Simulated assay, not measured.
Amino acid sequence: MRLHRIHLNPRCREARRDLADAYQMHATLCRAFFPPETPCPAGSLLWRLEPETDAEGRPRVLIQSRATPDWSRIPVSAWLARAEPGIDLVQKLALDTIKPGQVFRFRLRANPCKMVQGKRQGLVHPDAQREWLVRKGEQHGFALPESDTPDYFDAMQRPDGLAYRDVRVSHEQMLRGTQHGGHAIRVYSVLFEGRLAVTDAVQFRKVLATGIGHGKVMGLGLLSIVPATDQPWTTANLGKTAL
C-alpha cells in the first residue's frame, strides 16, 4: 500500500476539467494505475484533492493504491506538473505494529450522511458531522480523544471551519461529476482534521486500506495519518467520546 502525491498543471485544459469533475478525475487516475485493457477495480485506489496548493499554486492530489502508477499512460503530457516518489505506508507508519491507544493526527474528506426514505442526505450541521465521524470510528477501530491541551485547541481555531477539542470540520463542498452517458453526480463533502486514537488495530489497519464512507470514486474516504507527537495515550481517554 503506497501513497503518491502529484501536482497538476492548472494551465492544462484537461487538468482543469478533472479538477472541476471528480468522476473524470478518478477516470484519469485509473489510466495511470491500470493499463487501458484493465478496468479500474472497485476500491482499488483512494484519492483526495487537497485544499492547499504547492508553492507555485499547482493543485495537489493524494492517491493511495497497491498498484504502481505509470504516469506516461495519461494521454495529455501537460496534465501532470510533478509526481513525488511513492511512500510505502506499511513501512513508513509501521502499520504492522499499531496497537490500541496509539494516537495519530489525521485528515479525511468524506460524505457525512444519513438515510432518509431510502436516500442518502448530507449532514450539514457540524455537531451531526462530528457525531457521524464518531460512529464511523466505532465501526473502524478508532475514537476521537478529547484533548486537555489548550495549545492544541488554539491551533485548531481557524476561520474556515468549526473547531472541537479533537477535530476541525471545514471546507464544505458539493462535489460534481459526470458519468459516461451524461448522468450527473452530486455528493456533499466536508474535510475532517484532528486527532484519533486507535481502539482496534485490526479494524483500523483495514479502514486505512479501504477508506471511510461513500463516494470514494469522487475523491472521498481516504484516511491519511501521521503519528502524533503527544504520545502516549491510555485507553482510559477513549471513553470520553462515547455517545
Rank of each mutant, 00 (worst) to 15 (best):
7 H>L: 04
229 T>M: 13
210 T>L: 00
93 L>I: 00
142 F>S: 14
179 Q>N: 11
44 S>C: 13
208 L>G: 01
174 M>D: 15
200 D>W: 04
89 L>A: 01
197 A>F: 12
234 T>C: 07
243 L>R: 14
34 F>S: 09
85 P>M: 04
93 L>W: 00
132 W>L: 07
195 R>S: 15
38 T>L: 14
110 A>V: 03
214 H>M: 08
128 A>E: 14
196 L>S: 11
123 L>K: 01
142 F>D: 13
76 V>F: 13
165 R>V: 14
200 D>G: 13
43 G>A: 06
220 L>E: 07
217 V>R: 10
53 T>Q: 06
219 G>W: 00
203 Q>H: 04
87 I>Q: 15
9 N>T: 04
150 P>I: 07
211 G>L: 03
8 L>A: 05
112 P>T: 03
55 A>N: 07
109 R>W: 01
37 E>R: 10
190 V>K: 07
84 E>H: 11
209 A>W: 02
126 P>G: 06
123 L>G: 06
163 A>L: 04
150 P>Q: 04
169 V>S: 09
86 G>W: 01
219 G>M: 08
188 Y>E: 04
24 Q>M: 11
127 D>H: 09
53 T>V: 09
32 A>C: 04
178 T>C: 12
11 R>M: 10
240 K>R: 13
124 V>H: 13
229 T>Q: 12
80 L>V: 05
233 W>M: 12
95 L>N: 00
179 Q>I: 10
233 W>Q: 14
180 H>D: 13
100 P>E: 10
214 H>P: 05
229 T>S: 13
120 R>V: 05
22 A>Q: 11
4 H>E: 14
173 Q>T: 08
71 W>Y: 05
208 L>A: 00
114 K>R: 05
94 A>E: 10
128 A>I: 06
29 L>D: 07
